Simulated scan of single mutants.
Amino acid sequence: AEIKPAFVQNRCYARSQWDAQIRQLCRENDALYQGFSLLTANATELQKPGIAGIAKRLGCTMPQLVFRFALQLGMMPLTGTSSEKHMGADLASYGLELNPSDMAVVEQIALGN
């Protein structure tokens, strides 16, 4: 392409390790990966005890945990809401920090961990 894309928007699944290959391609080509449906596309995986345990320990919601995970991976999480309360809660994910163990649990949640 004559003009390289700056963004890639993709439905992001835990079962593909959160689109690891596409995120790598984006990094290699200076494009920002924007993941959508992070919650709805992964509803089954996000019910696993590992996720709940991390959220409880951090005192956050599961969506906040997932959005923080995405940010720390270098992904821009896309979410949509018309609720000011929900948007405030989503933005609170910027105040969290996941340790390497937390990141590994979320990244591999579809593998049964």
Rank of each mutant, 00 (worst) to 15 (best):
Q9P: 05
E84L: 15
L73M: 15
F7K: 07
Y33L: 10
L65E: 07
P100K: 12
A110G: 05
L71K: 02
R23N: 01
H86M: 14
Q21R: 14
T40R: 10
S16C: 13
S93L: 00
R57K: 15
Y33V: 01
W18E: 11
M76G: 02
I22N: 06
G95M: 05
L73Y: 04
R15F: 02
E97Q: 14
G112H: 05
V66N: 08
L58W: 01
D90V: 00
K56I: 02
N99S: 14
D90I: 00
P49L: 15
N42Q: 03
Q24V: 03
I51T: 01
N10E: 10
L38H: 07
M87P: 01
L39C: 12
N29F: 04
T79Q: 09
T61D: 09
I22H: 06
A92M: 05
R11Y: 00
A6I: 08
D90N: 13
A41W: 01
N99G: 11
Q21V: 08
A20Q: 04
I22M: 14
Q34Y: 12
L46R: 02
T61Y: 03
A6V: 07
F67S: 03
G112A: 10
L58M: 10
P5K: 09
P100T: 08
K4H: 12
F36T: 08
L91W: 00
I109Q: 01
T79K: 11
